[in-house]
Every structure is written in structure tokens, then in C-alpha cells.
Computed example of a mutant assay.
Amino acid sequence: MSGYTTLRLGGPARTFVEVTTEDELIAEVRAAELAGDPVLILGGGSNLVISDAGFPGTVIHVSTRGVTVEDGLVTAQAGEDWDAFVARCVREGLSGVECLSGIPGRVGSTPIQNVGAYGQDVSETITEVRAYDRRTGEILTIPAADCGFTYRHSVFKGDDRYVVLAVTFRLAASPDSAPIKYAELARALGVEPGGTVPLQDARDAVLALRSGKGMVLDAADPDTRSAGSFFTNPILDERQLKEFADRAEGFPAFPEPDGRTKTSAAWLIDHAGFPKGHANGPVRISTKHTLALTNPTEEATTEELLALAREVRDGVRAAFGITLVNEPVFVGVTLG
């Protein structure tokens, strides 16, 4: 499986099939279930940490294709490359996903963890998700209101009941971006937060920022052999925030709509003594971004990567009393 993940980690699958149509995808899932096989639905492999032992079942690689545009509604099949989809939307003057440029993976994975970056989340534009319900055998159209979208989470995450088949977005027909919310991106574009810019300018700026952090896949850049941000930003309630504030000062704080406060996992990692480039054997923190754990030489094992993740998690907990949570999906492994 190492050849199908951006971390270049993971042992063999017992059975591996690639599907190019929705009917094939559903048929392979059903066949595996009838055989009593565990099923792993694989897209771009950009958000997976797979055991060195591999996967003892059927891996279904989703390569379905197709995009339709009608009255501002854009529907993409699950196997469509996400960044290619964003680039097409920008070219066609469809605004709402331009700040999500450069994110690796496929469209079908985006609702699962409510993919977001630079002030945009897919939950802002998704109207519905077409999915196969493995529990009932039905094909469902799930409206966004029933997807349970929260920060990096949804009803699809951590539960293999649904197989995402297609995703529909409502995008604005506009040559300009949605309001730029993220301060770093606004500075790069030379606008105030809340301002707008031409779509292509927003995409170019996001790609430049992500590339500078090793977050755009590049075979020549060993820092991109990662799963992106390895830990989610902690969201603290009032008690947790007070306890944290008693142990730290000058930390980033971002109010959430529900009254809680988000802080920066990257800040925590750096201030707990784990700078960019910190290594543990053949794995290391990216030299460009504190949140990415990398396999730069492609010679590491998953267990070596997890050892570094545990070192960072435990160090942050000892320094600040906050336990970081992994963002990638773990297959056959845990942080313990």
C-alpha cells in the first residue's frame, strides 16, 4: 500500500481492486461483504496511515470520473482529483473552493473530514452527498444538514457505514473569490480580511503558501512525503482554556461560534520543543511546517512514524496539558 499513500507507508493488501464506475464500486463493496472481507475504500491516500502489516481484506481504489455543472450546482464523482476539480472551478468562474487549492486527494474524501484550509471548509458549499449505505444496501442522497459537519469531522468519519459516491457543491458564478477570511492569505494577496480578489489570484496565492510549507505534492520535495497536517487544532472549553492560559502565554486564540476557543497545534508543538526538522530515526517533522510528519527518504516504517507522533503528542501534553488528536485516518494502528 505504500505506493498508494502520500506518506509512502503501509504493507500489502490481501485483495486490491480499482473501480472506475459507481456500479463497479457498489458491486465490489457488496462482493467483499458477501465474502466476509473487511473493506478499505481508498482515494488519493493523502490522509491515511496504514499499518506495516497492511490490510487483511479488500482495498477498493476509487477512480470514478465525471463532473457536471448546472445552475450553480457542481457534482463531482468521488474519484475525481480534488485539486484538478478546484482548478476547473476557477477556470470556469465558479467561486467557493478556490482557497482549497493544492490539497491532495480525491473529491470523495472531502466531506468525510470536512476538508478545510485558509478560511474555507467544504461544508460551506456542499449541498448534498450521494452515498451507498452498507447497512441497508440503499443509495442515498444525504443533504448537507444531515452530514453532521463540524471541525474536521462528519457523520462519514470513523464509521464505514457510508461509501461516498459523489458530492454536490453550490458555487457562485463569479470571477472573484469568496471573501478572504484567513489573515495570512489576505496579507499575501494585499487585501484586508473580508476582501475579494480574482479567483486565479486566490488560487495562485494559496498554492504558493502551501508550497512554501511543503503541502503541495512534489516528487522533488521530500517534505511532501506526509499526510499533511498530522494533528488537528485543539478546541478548548472555558475550563481547558483557563488551565492552558495558566501554563502558557502569547498563544494563538481563535473564538469558535459555540463559545469555545481554538488554538494552534503547530504553536503547541513548536513551543513544546519540537522545531521544524526535528527527527526521530528516518522520520522527521517537516523542515517547512511543524504540523507535518514526514518520511523523507521513503525508507521508514509506519511504526517509526508513530513513534515520532507519540513523542510529539506526549511532549505537548507534558508541557501544556493538551492532548493532540491525529487528523489522518489510521488503518490497523493506533497512537495508544
Score class of each variant (00 low, 15 high):
T5Y: 12
G10W: 12
A27K: 06
R30D: 09
R30P: 01
A31C: 07
A32N: 05
D37N: 13
P38C: 07
P38Q: 04
G45N: 11
N47A: 14
V59H: 05
H61N: 12
H61M: 06
V62L: 06
S63R: 09
S63Q: 13
T64R: 02
G66A: 12
Q77K: 08
A78L: 04
W82L: 02
C89Q: 03
V90T: 13
E92V: 02
S95C: 09
G105L: 01
R106M: 14
G108S: 04
S109W: 05
A117C: 08
G119R: 09
Q120Y: 00
S123C: 12
I126Q: 01
T127P: 01
V129F: 01
R130T: 15
I139V: 15
T141K: 05
I142N: 04
V155A: 13
V164S: 04
V167M: 02
T168L: 05
R170G: 00
R170V: 03
K181V: 15
L185C: 04
V191H: 01
V191L: 09
V197Q: 09
D201C: 08
R203D: 02
G214F: 06
A220Q: 11
A220F: 09
P222H: 07
G228R: 08
S229R: 01
F230Q: 02
T232R: 15
R239V: 14
Q240R: 10
K242P: 00
K242M: 07
F244Q: 05
F244I: 10
A245Q: 07
E249W: 05
P252R: 04
G259W: 10
T261K: 10
W267F: 11
I269T: 08
A272T: 08
G277S: 09
H278K: 06
A279V: 08
V283C: 15
S286A: 10
S286E: 06
T287G: 08
A292P: 01
L293H: 08
T301Q: 06
E304T: 14
L305F: 15
L305G: 08
L306S: 04
L308V: 13
E311M: 12
V312H: 06
D314Q: 15
I322R: 01
G332N: 06
G332L: 05
T334W: 09
L335V: 10
G336R: 14
